[in-house]
Design a binder for these strands. Structure first.
Length: 303
DNA sequence: GTCCAGGTCGCGC
DNA sequence: GCGCGACATGGA
């Protein structure tokens, strides 16, 4: 018997639910899905105690008076601890507590079109754990989006906990599940290619307790030191480290990839190919907000 | 068949 | 520190 429990959280304003929910490709990477028509972000989630629930997250407020509704489908009862865990998790993926006002102040100074960012732009969707974000990021490197989708879907289907009411749906696998799987799983079954050992090794490092990956959320380390921690993950280079720093709320490094290079080349170098250093320099004066500045320009240009 | 993707590693200089 | 080939995989 499936029950539905309705929860509500109140993000820090300004908050644009739609803009946040599908702020980047993560919205459509399993176990997350985004229904643009209904404006519902959905995902299966395995709670700490092993219970597997399905969440449907939607807008229940406005940019200036934001509220987010969470419909939790679950068997049996939901404890207050479980409710709190879910609220905290949704807060994390939507970054409801993040303070972007310093960035918005810079945008105000710039005028049009930057002022558009101040209405809630910049809360880029996260996964519930840095482990999930790290695995997904590794699966975006040196491959097209279709390949990323295939690999992440495979990990979820093969190693994720099934949702009891619809066992075709799965949660994202825990580090324990990934670490415990035989190495062939990642090459013969999920077909991660050379990334297989990277993902497996990360899970083993995390579960062995030698690497406190989730602890990085609350780290006081300056960004360069935090970056070093991330670069210690096999399969994480400059691009992935910058992406993960963004997902940790640090925007001082740009994730330089083919997309970034092409965008900057067209917009600032009249179609001529700059060096990476020259391309990065375009955003130097954004200080601690470079990543969001680029992301906004890219977003705005594609509208 | 060949090329290469929202890169990274390991090596040699 | 910097340049360069190799790397699995599947789509273009």
């Amino acid at each position: 018997m499936t029950h539905i429990t309705h929860l509500t959280i109140a993000p820090r304003a300004p908050f644009d639910f739609r803009l946040t929910a599908h702020s980047h490709g993560w919205a459509g990477l399993p176990p997350t899905s985004w229904d643009d028509k209904k404006g519902v972000l959905q995902r299966v989630k395995r709670l700490r105690d092993g219970k597997v629930v399905r969440l449907s997250i939607s807008d229940a407020g406005s940019v200036e008076a934001p509220r987010v509704a969470i419909a939790v489908e679950h068997a049996g009862a939901l404890s207050s601890e479980q409710e709190t865990e879910i609220e905290d998790m949704v807060g994390r993926i939507l970054r409801t507590d993040e303070d972007l006002l310093p960035f918005y102040a810079l945008c105000q100074e710039r005028g049009t079109p930057w002022t558009r960012a101040t209405e809630g732009f910049g809360r880029l969707l996260r996964s519930p754990t840095l482990f999930e974000d790290a695995v997904k990021t590794i699966c975006t490197t040196n491959i097209q989006w279709g390949g990323t989708l295939r690999m992440v879907q495979g990990l979820v289907d093969v190693l994720g906990a099934p949702y009891p009411a619809d066992p075709s749906l799965h949660a994202f696998p825990t580090p324990q599940a990934v670490a415990a799987a035989p190495p062939e799983t990642f090459t013969e079954t999920v077909r991660l290619g050379y990334r297989g050992p990277y993902v497996h090794a990360l899970a083993q490092r995390v579960t062995s307790g030698t690497f406190d990956l989730e602890g990085l959320y609350d780290s006081d380390l300056p960004t360069p030191a935090l970056r070093k921690e991330l670069l210690s993950i096999k399969g994480v280079g400059a691009y992935s480290a910058a992406t993960l720093l963004m997902l940790l709320g640090r925007y001082d490094y740009l994730a330089v990839d083919t997309e970034f290079r092409q965008f900057v080349q067209e917009r600032y170098f009249d179609g001529h190919r700059p060096s990476d250093a020259e391309a990065r320099a375009v955003y130097d004066d954004w200080g601690a907000w470079k990543y969001l500045a680029y992301w906004f320009e890219h977003w705005h240009a594609s509208r």
